[in-house]
Computed example of a mutant assay.
Amino acid sequence: MIKRWITTAALIIITIYLIPYSLPFLLALITAIMLENSVKWFMMRFKWTRFRAVLATFLLYLLFIALFVWFIVNLFIDQVVTLAQKAPSFANDFYKESLKDFFDQSGRYFKSLPPDVFQSFETTIENTLQSVTSMLQGVVEWLIGLAAAIPGFLIEFLVYLIAVFLFSLELSRLRIKTERHLREATKEKLYLITAQLNRAGIGFIKAQIFLSIVTFLMAFIGLSILKVPYAMLLSILIVFVDILPILGTGSVLVPWAIICFFQENQFLGFGLIVLFIIITVVRRILEPKVFSSNMGISPLAALISLFIGFKLLGFIGFFVGPAIVIVYDTLREAGIIKSRWKI
C-alpha cells in the first residue's frame, strides 16, 4: 500500500513538473476532445472513415482560425496605419489645446507659492516623469521581448496544430487503452466528470464570446453616437481589456474621458463616462447569469467563484474559481465526495 501511494505521489509530482513544457499538447488534447462531436457527426452523416472525418473537421478548424486572424490583422493594419498617420497632428493639437494652457496657468499659480512649496512640487514632478519614463522603457522592453518570442510562438503553434490532428485520430484508441485500466464504477464516474467538465469548458467559452459580443456592440454603438473616429478599432480594444479583470473598460474609457475634459470637450467626456457605466453595469448583471446557464452552476456560485478566484489568483483565478466549483459539484454527483453532515 505504501509503495502504491509513493508511486502515485511521484507520478503526480512529475506531471506537475512537466505541465509547463507540455502545454501545447495539453491544449491540443482539449481541442481534440472539443472537436470530437464534429468528427462523430461527419462519420455518422456521410458514413466516412475516422481519418476522413478528422481531416474534414481539422480543415474547418484551420479555416476558422485563418479567417479570424485575417479579420483581426486586416482591421488592425487598416485602422492602425491610418491612426498612426494622424497621431502626430493629434498630439500637437492636444498639446496646444489642453496641456499648454494647463501648464501656463499652473506656472503662474506656482510662482505665487513659497519657494519651499514650489521646490517640493518640482521634485514631485521630476519623480513622476522618471516613473513615467521607466514605465515607457518597460513597455518598450516588453514589446521587444514579445517580438523576439514570435518565432518561438509560431513553432509551438505549429506543434499544437499537428498535435490536434494526431490526437483527433488517436482519441478513440486512447479512450480504449485508458478504459482497460479502470473498473466499471471508476469508468462511470470518470465519464460523468469528463462530460461535466467538457460541457463547462465549452460553456465558459460560449459565455465569454457572448459577453464580448455584447460589450463590442455597446461600445461600437456608443462610440458611433458620440461620432468617435475608428469606432470599430476602439471597440475591439475595449473588448480586449474588458476580458482582463485586472484592467476592465475603465482603463480605456476613464483616462480618455479625462483627456476630453482637459480639451474642454465636455460632451465626449460625459458620453464616455456614461458609456463606461452602462458597459460595466450591463456586464456585471449579465455575467453571473450567462456563466451559470452555460456552465451549469447557480448565478450566486458563479459570481462568488469569479470574485474570490480573481482576488486570490488574479487573472488565472477568473478561470480557476468556477472550475473548482464545477469539479466539486461533479465529484459530489459522482459520489466521490459525500457531504451529508449535520450540525
Rank of each mutant, 00 (worst) to 15 (best):
L143C: 10
S98P: 06
I33W: 08
K96F: 07
I225H: 03
K206M: 09
L313G: 04
I308P: 06
K96D: 07
F157I: 07
Q105I: 00
R199P: 03
I304W: 14
K100D: 14
I176Q: 15
I13P: 08
Q79F: 04
E97P: 03
R175C: 12
S224I: 06
Y328N: 10
G138P: 13
G296K: 01
G335F: 02
I72L: 10
L226Y: 02
S305L: 01
L268I: 12
K47Y: 07
E36F: 01
L59Q: 12
I243T: 02
W41P: 07
F167V: 01
A148V: 13
K338C: 06
F291Q: 09
V327E: 08
V140N: 11
F153V: 08
H181I: 06
G321I: 01
F153K: 09
A257Q: 02
A56N: 14
L174D: 10
F276S: 12
S120I: 10
I236V: 15
S235K: 03
I65A: 14
Q137G: 15
S106H: 12
W70A: 15
F267P: 00
L272G: 00
F42A: 05
Q79R: 00
L226G: 02
I176F: 11
V164D: 01
L174W: 12
T8I: 11
R52W: 11
D78W: 14
F94L: 13
Y230D: 05
F25I: 08
V80P: 01
I16S: 11
L286D: 02
T49I: 10
F165K: 06
Q105P: 05
F76D: 00
L300C: 11
R332W: 03
A163P: 06
N74P: 00
V252E: 08
I213F: 11
A66H: 04
V69S: 09
T49Y: 14
L303T: 08
L18T: 07
